[in-house]
Amino acid sequence: MTEQKTLATLTLILRDLLGDNNIDLTMQTTRDDVPGWDSFTYVNFIVAVEAEFRVKFRIADVESFSDAGAIVAAIAAGRPR
């Protein structure tokens, strides 16, 4: 899966969780850029991403993803469950 396809899937997951179809993630998008993307929704999002891509992130990585691009990279390098 290309980075852009992964990013598009992440966008769909976040849109669904926040109920906001105006969200468009880029590789540089951070949590501060998306209204309502608080810590709770972030963890909810991570668990949904893990289920979608069948990967499991390390807790230390979850805490430190700086932007959507970092999540895309972690999925690309992710270890299958």
Binding site: I13, D16, L17, L18, G19, G36, F40, T41, V43, N44, F45, V47, A48, E50, A51
Partner: peptide, 14 residues
């Protein structure tokens, strides 16, 4: 949340 997902309850709209 992972435990909940493992029990078949998917993430839902916040």
């Amino acid at each position: 949340m992972r435990r909940r997902a493992a029990n078949g309850q998917p993430a839902r709209r916040t």
